[in-house]
């Protein structure tokens, strides 16, 4: 038998690698441009219906940031917010994936759970603050609960769709090898659904930040959200903006972590076209 006719495709080319340095220059340039625009608008006290005369300049914000990074309270707040969001998000990831698979694979569980989910889903997680206050003895659990609820639904929905969209041939193959229910779940359903699940995790992480910050603003006594709102109540605008920048950076970092993990576990997906992803 000849193997000549079955040459394998060459190793994956990496499109987007060549202009790597250039693309980073553009990204940094974009941020720098935005900062320069901000500086000009605020330093020149531009008022074109939108008023920039009372907004702090980037220089003032940078000064405040330089002060904050030497203050242990700043790190305490960051740690507090991170613990809250990571706890809520992790619980939501586990519960959301489990519930998504259950609803997609069992008509009974689908009928039991789906109506509940459909009624709960449109309620903005932040609107659950009063419920959280009634339910949980401490603020802390309430904030984690709200973060959990926020991330849970996007993860649930994307998992459900990903599981339903799986080709049946993989499951048939595993079953005709003698694989049972758990083997199908662990060897086919879970790995096969992961690319879709990570879409939900990315969205979930985003809404988690929205909700943890909002919840901290309403009922926290620590955390980046609380500190930002507190700065606003004492009319310390540069500190408000430091809070916002901090939230932006933290959100970006956690989103990147989810993205990176996602690429790691779905490395088998053929032909990723762009370096810049999503």
């Amino acid at each position: 038998m000849s193997t000549v006719s079955v040459a394998a495709p060459a190793a994956v080319p990496l499109p987007g690698r060549r202009p790597h340095a250039l693309r980073w220059a553009v990204r940094i340039g974009s941020l720098a441009g935005a900062l320069l625009l901000w500086q000009w608008l605020t330093a020149a006290d531009v008022t074109l219906w939108v008023r920039f005369d009372r907004l702090p300049t980037p220089v003032a914000v940078a000064g405040e940031l330089a002060r904050a990074v030497r203050d242990p309270v700043y790190y305490q707040d960051i740690a507090q917010s991170l613990v809250r969001i990571l706890t809520g998000f992790t619980l939501a990831a586990v519960a959301g994936v489990a519930a998504g698979i259950a609803v997609a694979r069992s008509w009974l569980l689908s009928d039991v759970l789906q109506p509940l989910f459909e009624v709960m889903r449109p309620i903005p997680a932040i609107a659950l603050v009063p419920v959280a206050i009634l339910l949980f003895p401490r603020n802390e659990e309430g904030i984690v609960f709200i973060t959990f609820t926020a991330a849970f639904f996007p993860i649930l929905v994307s998992t459900r769709h990903a599981v339903r969209a799986l080709p049946t041939v993989w499951e048939d193959a595993v079953r005709t090898m003698g694989g049972g229910r758990w083997r199908v779940l662990s060897s086919v359903v879970l790995p096969g659904a992961l690319p879709g699940v990570f879409g939900g995790l990315s969205v979930g992480m985003g809404v988690s930040w929205i909700c943890v910050i909002s919840a901290e603003m309403i009922s926290g006594d620590f955390g980046v959200g609380y500190r930002t709102w507190h700065a606003y109540t004492i009319v310390d605008y540069p500190a408000v903006l430091v809070g916002m920048v901090t939230i932006g950076v933290l959100g970006w970092g956690t989103a990147a972590a989810v993205e990176l993990l996602g690429r790691r576990v779905t490395h088998w997906l053929p032909a990723r076209r762009t370096g810049g992803h999503r």
């Binding site: 080709p167 048939d172 193959a173 060897s187």
Partner: peptide, 10 residues
Amino acid sequence: FQDDALLPWR
């Protein structure tokens, strides 16, 4: 199967 029955992540 005719095609695509291998688990693509393995």
